[in-house]
Design a binder for these strands. Structure first.
Length: 354
DNA sequence: TATACGTGGTG
DNA sequence: TCACCAAGTAT
């Protein structure tokens, strides 16, 4: 018997007898809900996305209701989940489906994969879960499980590796039960063939797993690229005039697009804000001569995928709104709390006491 | 096609 | 502390 055949049989039997994994979207047939769950789960742990899924479904039970959402409302609901372009694309696609498909989710792979924010993985997931179409999912779990069982050390982030694993996944798929198979292989990867400390001693595949036989389970899958990280220094100034504070929306070309922030000063090295430095900054950048430093918080750090942000939040009280800043960007806390912020700032706001 | 995009868990 | 990685996609 081929390894593919053994794999299929062992996987489906494990799924039937030993897979205890439960999730709110499991077994769901509504393509809208499947789509929503898959977008939330992109590069995101199930435990982290779980509550977000439930809140979105509660607030927006149908694609039409999501399409009718205000942008800020959706972003506020997404706040803290990361990769905020997912939220932007979610809104775009909900509106696209509402307008172009009359609210009916497309039911062919080519139509699904054409949706913004939907790539090969997500399209295969929706196609197989909602419509039982024979498309194999290829996510981090599948890369790991296949690389180990079949003993493949070609880097999964190489062009050759991506092609090879995509073909292997499609060959291995039980295409009469695509949805069941796809769910099973991801559950298996997440609970048995785990990245760290896999449960090889109780694994139903250990008798034919190449990595287990060669003792290299812990080095598979292979990745070739190491990502570069840089450190950036952010100083956020909470400018306050009476009960309002200055808020701006972050633009394109950098992290946290569409999220909000306070007045940002980025420096090439760690800043040390003393009176003279502050005087100069306020005068040069904002033409402000009169201010009071209310508070200078601790330097906190956040690790992103490609950069480390070292940030400090300083609160300044000004006598009036500077001419250099627009009136409309000054908001009371009541309004500010409805906007989405990066974690560093939402945490600061949560602890903010007037 | 190489790189950027968030946040949190884990060993 | 730190590297790795998690139901990837867009550009």
């Amino acid at each position: 018997m081929t390894t593919s055949k053994k794999f299929r049989t062992a996987l489906l039997q494990w799924n039937k007898l030993d897979n205890k994994r439960q999730m709110p979207w499991k077994g769901e047939k509504d393509p809208y809900k499947i789509w929503l769950s898959e977008i939330i789960l992109q590069q995101t742990r199930v435990e982290q996305g779980w509550a977000y899924y439930e809140r979105f479904i509660e607030r927006f039970p149908t694609v039409q209701q999501l399409a009718a959402a205000r942008d800020e409302q959706a972003f506020k609901l997404w706040e803290g989940l990361g990769y905020y372009n997912r939220c932007k694309n979610l809104l775009f696609t909900a509106r696209y489906i509402t307008e172009n498909y009359n609210g009916r989710f497309p039911d062919s792979y080519p139509d699904i994969v054409a949706l913004k924010g939907v790539g090969p993985y997500t399209a295969a997931a929706i196609a197989s879960f909602a419509f039982n179409l024979p498309y194999a999912v290829l996510d981090g779990n599948v890369f790991r499980v296949l690389s180990r069982v079949f003993g493949i050390d070609i880097p999964i982030d190489s062009t050759q590796g991506k092609t090879l694993f995509a073909e292997l996944a499609q060959e291995t798929l039980d295409d009469t039960r695509a949805g069941e198979f796809n769910q099973a292989i991801m559950d298996f990867g997440a609970t048995v063939c785990k990245p760290l400390a896999p449960l090889c001693t109780v694994c139903p595949m250990r008798h034919f797993c190449e990595a287990y036989r060669h003792g290299n389970v812990n080095v598979l899958p292979v990745k070739q690229k190491v990502l570069q990280k840089k450190t950036r220094w952010f100083s956020w100034f909470v400018l306050r005039v009476n009960d309002k504070m200055f808020i701006r929306k972050r633009g394109s070309g950098d992290i946290w697009e569409n999220l909000h922030e306070f007045y940002l000063v980025e420096t090439p090295a760690q800043p040390h804000w003393n009176k003279q430095e502050l005087d100069t900054l306020l005068k040069n950048q904002l033409a402000v001569n009169n201010y009071e430093l209310e508070n200078a918080g601790p330097v906190t750090s956040q690790q992103l995928t490609h950069q480390t942000i070292k940030a400090q939040v300083l609160t300044l009280r000004l006598p009036e709104i500077p001419e250099s800043l627009r009136e409309k960007e000054w908001l009371p806390y009541r309004k500010v709390s409805q906007l989405a912020f990066p974690k560093l700032l939402s945490q600061w706001l949560a602890g903010w006491k007037l």
